[in-house]
Design a protein around this nucleic acid. Structure first.
Length: 422
RNA sequence: GGAGAGAUGGCUGAGCUGGUCUAAGGCGCACGAUUGGAAAUCGUGUGUGGGCUAAUACCCCACCGAGGGUUCGAAUCCCUCUCUCUCCGCCA
């Protein structure tokens, strides 16, 4: 959510920043409603003030034995007017809030202006895509041949876009999860969190999934709970409506969770393999930072996420998303893309974002710099550290051998108890 | 799921027979006095959001778990919901 005071004081700048996203967002309606709101507040509060002062007269007059009938009549009239004003105000507040919640974050000036992912800016590359001396198979064929991935049975048991992992495939998924959690918590200093996989509506609103993107989420039928699309939601909302002290920052959390996405609008895309599932595993990195250092924290967060790919020996590149490709809540995002031989290109495996105070304002997460200072909104950041299913896909494809077996990266051998599959 | 008890400021804790609540008292915290310095003591201050504003100054409005209602007036009465605790049931 953008700051209404910023919208009020610099409307042109805000509109210009939003225009970079290219989706026709603007704040003109909000400005008009804001004026109406403040006019109404002024008149209603004046009446309330009068009501309060008259109310104080009641016990006084009664003590003096004066007749209060006329006073009560005046107060009744005031009361009716106040009720009317409050109702009108509540209506304005509601539409103003819903408008504000539907406006995306303003991009950081460093974000390149662009239309879609073809305009993203490559920042750096690590490793070289392997030259195969045989025809490499896509991971879904490797998975089938080794009998470690089974989407057909999952389609029967549940539906499309689900997988059973079997045998060493299941163990590989679990090995990657454990490796990532150990890496981030032991080497990079993130405190490990195991969050709930369902959250309430307030949490989904706090991080920006609601109200605009309800169709992307799985919602329980018998509760107002949602299956989390990422651990970012429960972990960021741990501090909803809290005021932290400055010396607690930055707070660094890593969390494994299963992630659930309806993938509305993705019909026909990535229909085979592990790339786009309704349920997938991910280890997420979340930071709560001082606004002054949040962009340094974004750099280190991105490096921390990329470090696990380096440790596995997977080739990747880092791109800065352009304005048109930027997520709703983000001010700046680095995507980390792993090289996927079956796609013959780099495929997103992590998305690291600085939300600045956009989520913090929605979720009301604040900090106090000094004892006695006014609380201010902190900055929230998160990034995948990294997607587990896509990692398994990348391992199967990048480390496949001519005989159909797959070599296990050295870092995972202690977790697997073997050095190859097949 | 059933029965009961509860939710008040950073914490603790009164108020809960509606109007002197502008929410007592204590603890903590901040500043000051005292002191060679400290403790103890004494004094002063101590929330959040909104409106107005150059102002983080004054003034005004709102906030006693959340949302509704009754009333001229609600921390206080009524309803719904959420959470916590105790017991029972069920369950991993």
């Amino acid at each position: 959510m953008l700051d209404i005071k910023l919208i009020r004081s610099e409307p042109e700048a805000v509109n210009k920043a939003l225009a970079a996203r290219g989706k026709g967002h603007n704040i003109d309606e909000i400005l008009a409603l804001d004026v109406k709101r403040r006019d109404l507040i002024f008149s209603v509060e004046q009446k309330k003030s009068e009501q309060n002062s008259k109310s104080k007269l009641v016990p006084q007059w009664k003590k003096e034995g004066r007749d209060t009938a006329e006073l009560f009549a005046e107060m009744k009239k005031l009361s009716d007017e106040i009720k009317e004003g409050d109702a009108a105000l509540a209506e304005i507040d509601e539409s103003l809030t819903s408008m504000l919640l539907s406006i995306p974050n303003t991009p950081n000036p460093l974000v390149p202006i662009g239309k879609d992912d073809t305009d993203n800016l490559e920042i750096r590359k690590n490793g070289t895509p392997r030259q195969f001396d045989f025809a490499p198979l896509p991971h879904w064929e490797i998975g089938k041949a080794l009998d470690i991935l089974d989407p057909e049975t999952a389609a029967k048991v549940t539906g499309a876009r689900f997988h059973f992992y079997k045998g060493l495939g299941a163990r590989l998924e679990r090995a990657v999860i454990n490796f990532y959690l150990d890496f981030h918590s032991k080497k990079s200093g993130y405190t490990e969190i195991f969050p709930p996989f369902m959250v309430n509506r307030a949490s989904m609103t706090g991080t920006g999934q609601l109200p605009k993107f309800e169709e992307d989420a799985f919602k329980l039928a018998n509760e107002d709970y949602f299956l989390i699309p990422t651990a970012e939601v429960p972990v960021t909302n741990m501090f909803r409506d809290e005021i932290l002290s400055a010396d607690a920052l930055p707070i660094k959390y890593c969390a494994y969770s299963a992630c659930f996405r309806a993938e509305a609008g993705s019909a026909g895309r990535d229909t085979r393999g592990l790339i786009r599932q309704h349920q997938f595993n991910k280890v997420e990195l979340v930071k709560f930072a001082d606004p002054e250092t949040s962009y340094d924290e974004l750099e280190s967060l991105t490096n921390d996420a990329a470090a696990v790919l380096e440790a596995l020996g997977l080739p990747y590149r880092v791109v800065r998303l352009c304005s048109g490709d930027l997520g709703f809540s983000s001010a700046m995002t680095y995507d980390i893309e792993v090289y996927m031989p079956s796609y013959e290109r780099y495929v997103e495996i992590s998305s690291c974002s600085n939300f600045e105070d956009f989520q913090a304002r929605r979720a009301n997460i604040r900090f106090r710099r000094e004892n006695g200072d006014k609380p201010q909104f902190l900055h929230t950041l998160n990034g995948s550290g990294v997607a587990v299913g896509r990692t398994v896909a990348a391992i199967l494809e990048n480390f496949q051998n001519a005989d159909g077996s797959v070599t296990i990266p050295e870092a995972l051998i202690p977790y697997m108890g073997c050095d190859k599959i097949g």
